[in-house]
C-alpha cells in the first residue's frame, strides 16, 4: 500500500508531460490556421485553448481520449459498429479461444516432454528457437491461407493467439511438473505409485503456481496475437481493426481510444487470471 503515493505521482507526471507534448505537437496546426485567416499569431493562452480540443490532433489530449473511450463504450448501442464494446468483444473472444488452445497445447507438450526423454531433447530446443522467430510476421499469411480454404472469422485469429501463448505455458509447465523434489518422488515410489498416479497426485498439483504465473504472461500474449491478427483482414471488426481504420482515416482520437481499450482489456484479463489463481491456490492450501 505504501507504493500508492509514488505510483500516483508517476502517473500524474506522465499525464502532465502528455498535455505539454500535446500543446507542442498540435501548435503548428493552430499557427497555420491563424496565418490562413490572416489573424496575428495566437498568444500562449489562446494556443493552450486551441490545442486541447482539435478534431484531428497530432496527439489527442488525455481528456479527449477518455471522452471518446467513454462515449464509444457506454454511449452507443452494443451492436453498433462504432461501439468499442462490440469491437472489444470480437477481440476478446478470439483471445480467449486462442488462449485455451495455446494453453492446452502447451500443457500437452509439457506432459510429453517430462515423460519422454527423446521428446525433451528434440522438441524443447525447437520450441525455444520458435520464440526467436517473429511469429507475428506470419499472421497475414495464416489469415489469407485459412481464408482461401474456407476458414475465416474467429479461428485464424485464435490460431495466432495460440501460437503466441503456448510457449510461456510450455516452459512454465515443464518447470512446474519437474518441481517436486526427489524426497517427494521417493515417497510416492515407496507407496508403489504408478507413473500415472505420481502425475495426478504429485506432479500436477505442485505445478499449479508455475502454471498460473505463465498463464498471466500467456493471456497478455494472446491479446497481442488477436489484435495483430485483425490487421490483415482489412479492418472488419475488432480492436485491431479500429487501430487500422483509424490510421487509414487519420482519426487519431479513435486510435488512442482503441489503444486504451486494448490496455484495459489486457489489465482485466490478467487480473481475472490472478483472481482465479488466488482462489485455486488458496483452496489447494498453497498460498505462501
Amino acid at each position: 500500500m505504501r507504493s500508492i503515493l509514488p505510483v500516483v505521482t508517476v502517473v500524474l507526471i506522465i499525464v502532465a508531460l502528455w498535455y505539454a507534448a500535446a500543446v507542442r505537437l498540435n501548435a503548428p496546426w493552430v499557427y497555420d490556421q491563424a496565418e490562413r485567416a490572416g489573424a496575428p499569431a495566437p498568444g500562449f493562452g489562446q494556443l493552450l485553448g486551441e490545442t486541447m480540443d482539435q478534431e484531428r490532433p497530432v496527439l489527442p489530449t488525455p481528456h479527449q481520449v477518455v471522452t471518446e473511450l467513454v462515449k464509444s463504450t457506454f454511449g452507443m448501442a452494443v451492436s453498433s459498429k462504432r461501439s468499442l464494446v462490440y469491437h472489444g468483444w470480437v477481440t476478446i473472444s478470439a483471445t480467449l479461444l486462442g488462449f485455451a488452445m495455446g494453453t492446452g497445447l502447451g500443457i500437452l507438450l509439457a506432459v510429453g516432454i517430462i515423460h519422454n526423454r527423446a521428446m525433451d531433447l528434440s522438441v524443447m530446443p525447437w520450441a525455444i528457437a520458435s520464440q526467436t522467430i517473429p511469429i507475428l510476421a506470419i499472421a497475414p499469411m495464416i489469415i489469407v491461407v485459412l481464408n482461401s480454404i474456407g476458414v475465416q472469422g474467429l479461428i485464424p485469429k485464435a490460431i495466432i493467439s495460440a501460437f503466441l501463448s503456448f510457449f510461456p505455458v510450455l516452459v512454465g509447465m515443464v518447470k512446474g511438473l519437474r518441481s517436486p523434489d526427489q524426497m517427494q518422488l521417493d515417497l510416492l515410489a515407496t507407496y508403489g505409485a504408478s507413473k500415472r498416479e505420481t502425475f495426478w497426485k504429485l506432479r500436477l498439483p505442485s505445478s499449479m503456481p508455475y502454471l498460473f504465473t505463465s498463464l498471466k504472461v500467456g493471456i497478455a500474449a494472446s491479446l497481442v496475437g488477436a489484435i495483430v491478427g485483425e490487421l490483415p483482414t482489412g479492418a472488419v471488426a475488432g480492436l485491431g481493426a479500429r487501430l487500422l481504420s483509424g490510421s487509414y482515416y487519420g482519426q487519431t482520437v479513435q486510435i488512442w481510444a482503441a489503444l486504451f481499450a486494448a490496455a484495459l482489456v489486457a489489465a482485466v484479463l490478467v487480473m481475472a487470471v490472478g483472481v482465479i489463481e488466488g482462489r485455486v491456490l488458496r483452496r489447494m492450501g498453497m498460498v505462501r
Binding site: 490510421s247 487519431t252 490496455a263 489486457a266
Partner: peptide
Amino acid sequence: LQRGLLPVGNFVAALPIVGIAPI
C-alpha cells in the same frame, strides 16, 4: 521514483504495445 515507476513499467510491459505502431 523506483516504487512509482516499477508498477507502471510492469503494467506497460504487459500491454499490447504494437498498437502504438499506427500512431
